[in-house]
């Protein structure tokens, strides 16, 4: 993989790409917010509250995307034992959990004026909530061991098992929902979206992706450096003991 599994090369790469990603994040989210808040029409049914969509939908995308990154990186770490893949998986988890939380909270804020309630057991809401708990479990397991290596391995296995289960959970929740959901509350389906709304949505979507990538690079850099510091300290302690 372009030699990026080597931490030193990865650090160089992160230094090179990081500023560009950060810059494009500012540009994309800035312009997306401008279009979304000031230069796009209000929905004819939902009024101004539709603007929550420009935060809500991209964070839902990123919540799912970050889980896939975490699971794929975990699988790579398990099979090829690349140290950077471990760091990627661990760095991706809190970011994905945060995006999922933003999605849930903004969804509740959107639901209150639209559906008259903070929470409905809608299929998509429910599966996002379960996804959030999967993240929490992953992070709790990764941090539960005195030896960070063990935490990394155990949580990698969990991430892969969870990833296999995500479609099953999604399917079962959809099925459960169609059975129990009262017909009065239906999530606003958006079959045709106004181009004036699509532009800010896409800008925010790409902007959130670069935002995620920027933060992920930072986190991985920090983790690599923290590992090095720990190794240096261990070496010092051994040297003193000898």
């Amino acid at each position: 993989m372009f030699g990026l599994q080597n931490p030193t090369k990865f650090l160089k790469f992160a230094k090179l790409v990081g500023p560009w990603l950060a810059g494009s994040t500012i540009l994309l989210i800035g312009s997306g917010l401008w279009f979304g808040l000031f230069n796009s029409p209000a929905d004819y049914q939902q009024g101004e509250t539709v603007r929550i969509m420009y935060i809500h939908v991209p964070s839902a995308w990123m919540g799912m995307f970050a889980y896939s990154v975490m699971a794929i990186a975990s699988a790579i770490a398990l099979v090829w034992k690349h140290p950077v893949a471990d760091h990627l998986a661990r760095g991706s988890a809190p970011l994905g959990a945060a995006f999922t939380l933003i999605c849930l909270v903004s969804g509740a804020l959107w639901g209150k004026p639209m559906w008259g309630t903070w929470w409905v057991w809608d299929a998509r809401l429910t599966s996002m909530l379960i996804l959030f708990f999967l993240y929490l479990g992953y992070m709790a397991l990764a941090g539960a061991f005195d030896d960070p290596e063990r935490g990394a391995k155990a949580s990698a296995i969990l991430a892969v098992v969870g990833w296999i289960n995500v479609p099953i959970i999604k399917f079962s929740v959809d099925w459960w929902n169609t059975l129990h959901q009262p017909a009065s509350v239906t999530k606003t389906a958006m079959p045709s979206i106004d181009p004036a709304m699509l532009l800010p949505l896409l800008l925010m979507g790409v902007g959130f992706t670069t935002f995620y990538a920027t933060l992920l690079l930072w986190r991985v850099r920090a983790e690599i450096l923290a590992t090095r510091i720990r190794n240096i300290r261990l070496a010092q302690i051994h040297a003193e003991g000898a």
Partner: peptide, 20 residues
């Protein structure tokens, strides 16, 4: 195995997977 507070941790790991 070998984790701190493993018993509580199991519930967080396993219960979401039990939902289907």
């Amino acid at each position: 195995l070998g984790a701190r507070r493993g018993g509580v941790l199991i519930s967080l790991l396993v219960l979401p997977l039990f939902i289907p």
